[in-house]
Amino acid sequence: MAKKEKNKIKLAIYWGAACGGCCVSILDVHEKLFDIVAAADLVFWPIALDFKYKDVENMPDKDIDVTLFNGAVRNSENEHMANLLREKTKILVAYGSCSHLGGIPGLANFSNREEIFKRVYETTESTVNPEKITPQTKYKVAEGELSLPEFYNDVRTLDQVVDVDYFIPGCPPQSERLMEVFTAIVSGAELPPKGSVLGALDKSQCDECPREKSENKLIKEFKRPFEIEDDGKTCFLEQGVICMGPATRGGCGVRCIEGNAPCRGCYGPPTSVSDPGAKMMSAIATIIDENEPEAIEKVIDSIEDPAGTFYRFSVPSSIIRRNIETSEKKAEQAVV
C-alpha cells in the first residue's frame, strides 16, 4: 500500500456494469495523469492496479477521499462494492452515464433475467449449449464451493443503491471535464451542493450546437440519420432526425454533432428536467404536423424504437424504470 503523502488525496476508481470506456477516459487525460498521480494516491483501481477487495474492506471508514464509480449496478458484486466504497469514501462520484442514469446496460431493463439468460446462453446464433447450462451463484466442485455474483433482474443506477455525492455525466465523460473537476476537488475549493452534476453545463446541447436553428420544427416524417442527405448545417430536428440535444445537458463539446451524428443524450437531462425521455417525447410529439389520429400514428410509426431512442442512456433512472410486463412475469414466476 502506498504511503500517504501529505496534501495528497486518496483516490479510488471502480467499475460496475460498464464497458471500460470510463476507465479509458481517465487514461485519456494522457500526460495529465502525472498531475493526477502527483496530487492523489490511487488506492484502488481494478482495471489498472492490483488491489484486492479485501484491501478495501480493511480500510478504515471514510479513508478514501474520492471514489469515481463508473458502471451501473447489475449484480450482487456491483452492489456489494457500491456499498463498500460508500462506506470507505468521503466523496462518492457517479462517473459516466451508466452509474449516473443506467447507461447502455440499463437498456436491459426492457427484459428480465430469464429472458437475458435464455438469449445469451441458449438462443444466440453462435451458442451451442444443449445441456442448457446457465451460471449459478453457487456451485460445488471437489475443491469446495464456487460462487458467482448474482445476476439481478434489473439494472440500477448507483444512486438507486447508495447515497451519491456528485455525478459526472457522459458516455464516457470528457477527459477535459474530469480534469476540471479533479482540479477543483484537489484545490480544496468550495464544492457545489451535494447531488450536483459536475463537469457539465446547466444549459442543454443546443446552446453549444453550431448548427443553424429556426422555428421551422414541424415534422411530417421521422428519419434515421442515414436516410437524410445532411447538409451539415441545419438542425437535425428540422431535417426530421431525432436529436436528443434539446433535452441533454451540454458540456461534452457537442462531439457527436460535430461528427454529423445527432445527439443521443448520454450527458443526461439538464438540471431543470427530471425525465429527459418524457420531456423529449412531449416536445417531439408536439411538433408532429398532423391532426388526424391515423396520420399522427403513421408519423409516430416512423420512429423505430421510441423507448430506446428517448431513453437510450436513462432507462433505469426514468419514471417507468423497467418493462412492466416482464417484471410482472417475474413476479408470477416468483409466486409459482
Binding site: 436553428k213 420544427k217 414541424l218 439538464p270 431543470s272
Partner: peptide, 15 residues
C-alpha cells in the same frame, strides 16, 4: 422563459 436554461432550440415558437 427561464433564460438561464433556454438553449434556443425554438421548438416552442411554432407551438
Amino acid at each position: 422563459v427561464n433564460e438561464d436554461i433556454c438553449c434556443g432550440c425554438q421548438t416552442c415558437i411554432q407551438v
